[in-house]
Design a protein around this nucleic acid. Structure first.
Lengths: 129, 129
DNA sequence: AGTTCATTTCGCTATTTCCCGAAACATCGT
DNA sequence: ACGATGTTTCGGGAAATAGCGAAATGAACT
C-alpha cells in the first residue's frame, strides 16, 4: 500500500530536522564517541539519546558498533547521505559557538592517552591513571 | 530564552521533510505555477496546499506574488537555501516516475498559448479560446 | 453593490514526535 | 553467581503536525 517513492528521502530529512540530532552529527564530525558521552555532552537522558541514535542509524547517517559494554558511534561513510551532510555543514555556521562548546566538552570527557576504539571512555582523565 | 542558533536550519529541514512539499518543490523546479494548479495536480484541498506553501515561503524556499486574483509560486533564488536544494534533486531520483507524472499533469492544465505570468491559468486549453 | 473565484485563516480531530523514568538486556569485574 | 555499568525498550504525557471543511478575505467583472 504505502509505497511512496519519496519515503526514504523524507525519512532522512525528518531525521535531520531536529536540533539535538544536528548537534550529534556535528559532534561526530569531529570524531567518534560512545553513547554515554553524547548523553553527557547534550545533557539528555541516555534513553533519549539512544532513541535519537536509532533514527540516525535507521537512515544510514551514522554507524554504531560495540566496544566492550560501550556502543561507539561515528558518521557513516555511506555514499547516499554524504552529499546531504556536506551541504549541511556550511549551513550550521550560525551555530558554531554552540557546536564548538559541545566539541570542547566532548574532548574534556574523553581520555587523552588512548583512542576511543580500544579503551573505555572515562569521565575524567585522572580516573584512567 | 529560546534563541536556539540551529533553529533556522531545523525549520528549513522540517519544511523539506514532507512528501507533498518535496513534490511541490520538484514541480516548481520545472517552472512557476499558481496555487490552484498545484492543488489540482496534488489532489489536495486548496487550504492544505496554501498551508504547505506558507511554510515553504517562511523558510525562503519559494517566493509568491499576485497576478490578478491568482497567486503564482516559484522557487526562490535566495542563496541561503540553494545548496540544500541542489543536493536534494539527485536524491529524488528514486521518485522520478511520480514526479514526471506530476509535471505532465501540470503541463496539461497549463494554457499553452501564453506564459503563466501574464495569463490566468485555465483548467482546459479550450476554455481559453 | 453584488457576484464570482482564488486564496487564506480558523476550528477541529487524528496522528506523530519528543522526552523522560522504570524496567529489561547485555557485558564486564569480582 | 553477583553486582555494577552502559544501553535499549516500553509506557505515558505534553507538544507539534497534517489534513479537511467552513468561513473570511481580496480582486476582478457585471
Amino acid at each position: 500500500m504505502n509505497s511512496d517513492p519519496l519515503r526514504p528521502l523524507v525519512d532522512t530529512l525528518k531525521t535531520l530536522a531536529h536540533p539535538v540530532r544536528l548537534r550529534i552529527l556535528a559532534l561526530l564530525h569531529a570524531g567518534e564517541l560512545c553513547v554515554c558521552e553524547v548523553a553527557e555532552v547534550l545533557g539528555l537522558a541516555p534513553s533519549t539519546v539512544s532513541e535519537h541514535l536509532t533514527g540516525l542509524r535507521r537512515t544510514g547517517l551514522v554507524r554504531e558498533w560495540k566496544v566492550g559494554r560501550w556502543v561507539h558511534v561515528a558518521l557513516s561513510d555511506e555514499a547516499a547521505t554524504r552529499p546531504l551532510l556536506e551541504a549541511l555543514w556550511p549551513l550550521m555556521a550560525g551555530a558554531e559557538a554552540e557546536l564548538a562548546r559541545d566539541r570542547a566538552q566532548a574532548r574534556a570527557l574523553r581520555c587523552d592517552t588512548c583512542t576511543p576504539s580500544d579503551c573505555p571512555p572515562s569521565r575524567t582523565p585522572k580516573e584512567h591513571a
